[in-house]
Amino acid sequence: MDRTTIDLWVGIFVALGVAALLGLAMKVGNLTTNNIGETYTVTANFENIGGLKPRAPVKSAGVVVGRVADITFDTATYEAVVSLSLDKRYPFPKDTFANIYTAGLLGEQYIGLEAGGDEAALVNGDKITQTQDAVVLEKMISQFLYSKASESTDDKSEKSESTKSDADALGSSPLDNIGKPSND
């Protein structure tokens, strides 16, 4: 076969490959959607991180603002130390609040940031002091069972507080309870 024909075909082949790689990167991958360029790293301690994994997203108001860079264990406090790489474009105040949430009931876990009111922003190496642990399903279930058990043994108190417990069961399930900030 002619060399120029071969050159042409190989040129088409390589161009197709490059185009497909770009296509993968842009259309399939997240190169464009959350292109985390320069980052700064902050840490946060959690008593329990549940199933949080490195590379899990860090979201604020539902927008991905960074990723979990690393998870280590602190033997002094027996807490998990989670390093977060946050996008330089998104500064957060010093008193930002970090929660571990679960996407859906059984989905992956991610970190949610809620901005506080401090005027000073977090900088590289800072530590987020206010944190909320992951929801552990077993804990939740045992709490739920425990509360049910106490309901059935203590009829009187149940009656007097029936309205409240109804509201508990409907509106604020144990899920919500645990999701709320606790300062203990």
């Binding site: 790689l21 993968l24 259309k27 399939v28 991958g29 997240n30 959607t33």
Partner: peptide, 19 residues
């Protein structure tokens, strides 16, 4: 279809590792 894909396929850890 596309947005879920984009949210969960990572450029470096999925695509580049495949390459």
């Amino acid at each position: 279809f596309w947005s879920q894909m984009q949210a969960n396929v990572d450029w470096r850890h999925d695509i580049l590792n495949g390459v």
